[in-house]
């Protein structure tokens, strides 16, 4: 047993707080937008230059001038604002966005993150990921715990080129949740996914961690 994509997103949604400005990455993090708790005000930022992202448009109402960072058509809300990409990354680098939730290829026990390139394969580019992890005070990574072949993606040290060094605060995988001290204070296991045992988790995790369930 393990968490599915929706369950991982639901766990990530528990990191939201009333009044937060939040940036959501592509993939599972995008699902968090549909899981904002009732009564909580959360403003979503799109790093191409928008605060206050609305839902996808109804068919026929799409507007080529209104897209999110994943290049999907979206809509605006009454409180929406638009700005340049320089202002947008000023918000990000300046620490004004409180929470970034994004995907990963590898995370290590020092809080390093790799999610932008695999040597020898075509590099698409890092987009805004390096700025987000360097500038946002709280960074949550949501990713599968293992490679398709079964190898751990939560490592002692990332082997892929880094997106950021010492940048991850919380790692949510399909098997567990880990708190990481990005200043080098180690890793705590705080939750196991439904039906996952500690022994099963240890068997497929390279990073070392203390147990604080």
């Amino acid at each position: 047993m393990a968490w599915n994509r929706d369950q991982m997103a639901a766990r990530a949604a528990k990191e939201l707080r009333d009044g937060y400005y939040v940036n959501l990455g592509i993939g599972i993090p995008t699902l968090v937008a549909n899981m904002i708790p009732e009564g909580m005000t959360v403003t979503l930022q799109s790093e191409n230059g928008m605060l206050g992202m609305g839902p996808f448009p109804f068919e026929g109402e799409e507007d080529a001038d209104l897209i999110n960072a994943g290049k999907q058509t979206i809509t605006e809300l009454p409180q929406t604002s638009y700005f340049s990409s320089a202002d947008s990354f000023g918000m990000i680098r300046g620490g004004h966005i409180q929470l970034s939730i994004l995907g990963g290829m590898q995370v290590d026990e020092k809080g390093d993150l790799a999610n932008w390139m695999v040597p020898g394969k075509m590099i698409k580019g890092m987009g805004g990921a390096m700025d987000l992890v360097a500038g946002v005070p709280r960074v949550v990574v949501v990713m599968d715990h293992r490679e398709k072949g079964g190898d751990s993606k939560f490592l002692k040290e990332c082997t892929l080129p880094l997106t950021g060094k010492g940048v991850v605060d919380l790692l949510i995988t399909d098997l567990a949740v880990f708190e990481i001290d990005r200043r080098g204070g180690g890793v705590k296991l705080t939750e196991l996914a439904d039906g996952v045992t500690l022994d099963e988790l240890r068997a497929c995790t390279e990073a070392s961690f203390t147990v604080a369930l």
Binding site: P57, F58, E62
Partner: peptide, 11 residues
Amino acid sequence: KHIERLTTRPR
């Protein structure tokens, strides 16, 4: 104004 990822929701 070509749209790369047309994404809509049902009415």
